[in-house]
């Protein structure tokens, strides 16, 4: 890992240089409501400095809605018709600039499930992440409860830390180092800078009370004994079973596959699906293994907090707080965590 120091103007130049070989995206103020979301940028001044996360998670870059898996010509009778052609997106590489540590971490976590998925991995391959640490956390941030940090580096190629006048840039991967080099104009950071960053890190982490290793604690509990706990019923009575929480969650990654044919041009696409939707599990016969809302609500949380950790280790939540903010009826995953952690 190499650590550099760069001025605001220097960063702007980085972005401008990068645009020569990458598509560069950043959080941009989208409308008068103060909502920020990802859009292509050409310079630093376009990028929003609001604390917290963008409206949509960066999974839109890894699991595009929709993603074409194959194309084909449909039922034309020609020799080639109905033959699936692979369409691994080999588009231009891109840099996401201004990624929050929680979102960056989601790419790694989802990658655990998508290890064998060539489409996801191709997107990982061609997407470089330049993160910014969080000096200020939102009331809904809880990255520290689930194994992250406002200064976390997991998944990132570069982490930027804003200091009084400048930025410190930690190049975390080889790709990060080459990005810094392509950007140019950076000096190596001094010991003083490093010390300052370290104290900022400690301050930020202390500001957010951490739950003692949530994943570990969750694993030590017999969560299946909570399968019929009363609180699920209460949650599901409020829930309207929409897809807001799952679609906007960086670590919700379920999808459906379907074929679409328009004028003989066909494609097999995958698009976001949600375990909150009744059709998610419904059979052709009408039988539905999770036909009740309470089963679906429970599945969403159990998947994140029990099934995923059982399989892969970490909790499938990065604590970004989107689901809490965007749920129309304010279902709060932190309360569910507390309920589950209360189990003996």
């Amino acid at each position: 890992m190499k650590v550099y120091k760069i001025s605001r103007e220097g960063l702007d130049k980085w972005i401008k240089h990068w645009t020569e070989s990458y598509d560069v995206f950043g959080p941009v103020e989208k409308n008068e409501n103060g909502m920020t979301d990802w859009a292509e940028v050409k310079g630093l001044d376009e990028i929003s400095t609001a604390p917290g996360t963008t409206k949509q998670p960066i999974k839109t870059f890894y699991l595009p809605q929709p993603e074409t898996l194959f194309t084909f010509t449909s039922r034309g009778g020609e020799p080639d018709s109905d033959v699936l052609k692979e369409t691994l997106d080999e588009g231009r590489p891109r840099v996401l600039f201004g990624v929050r540590p929680c979102d960056a971490r989601s790419v790694t976590l989802n990658g655990l499930a998508y290890e064998e998925d060539p489409y996801y991995m191709a997107n990982v391959e061609r997407t470089l992440l330049v993160g910014v640490s969080c000096r200020e956390q939102c009331g809904t941030c809880f990255c520290r409860w689930v194994g992250g940090s406002p200064f976390g580096t997991e998944g990132l190629d570069i982490l930027l830390i804003e200091t009084e006048q400048n930025f410190v840039a930690e190049a975390l991967t080889d790709r990060g180092v080459s990005l810094v080099e392509a950007g140019g104009g950076a000096r190596e950071a001094s010991g003083e800078d490093l010390a300052m960053v370290e104290s900022m890190r400690q301050e930020a982490e202390q500001a957010m009370s951490a739950m003692p290793d949530t994943a570990e604690t969750l694993r030590s509990k017999d969560l299946m004994s909570m399968y019929n706990a009363d609180f699920w019923g209460g949650l599901s009575e409020s829930c309207i079973n929409c897809g807001a929480c799952t679609f906007l969650c960086p670590t919700c990654y379920c999808f459906d596959i379907q074929d679409e044919v328009v004028r003989k041009k066909g494609r097999r696409i995958r698009y976001w699906d949600s375990c909150m939707f009744p059709l998610f599990t419904q059979h052709a016969s009408g039988h539905n293994p999770r036909g009740q809302k309470v089963q679906r609500v429970r599945n969403r949380f159990m998947h994140k907090l029990k099934y995923f950790p059982d399989r892969f280790g970490p909790v499938s939540c990065v604590g970004c707080g989107r689901c809490i903010r965007e749920c129309p009826v304010n279902i709060d995953i932190r309360e569910v965590l507390r309920d589950l952690l209360g189990v003996e």
Binding site: C254, F255, R311
Partner: peptide, 19 residues
Amino acid sequence: LENRMKCGIGICGHCNCGP
């Protein structure tokens, strides 16, 4: 068991039955 499934390789999330 017969659960609805889409990918068949443990990613798409449709066919989980608990863990």
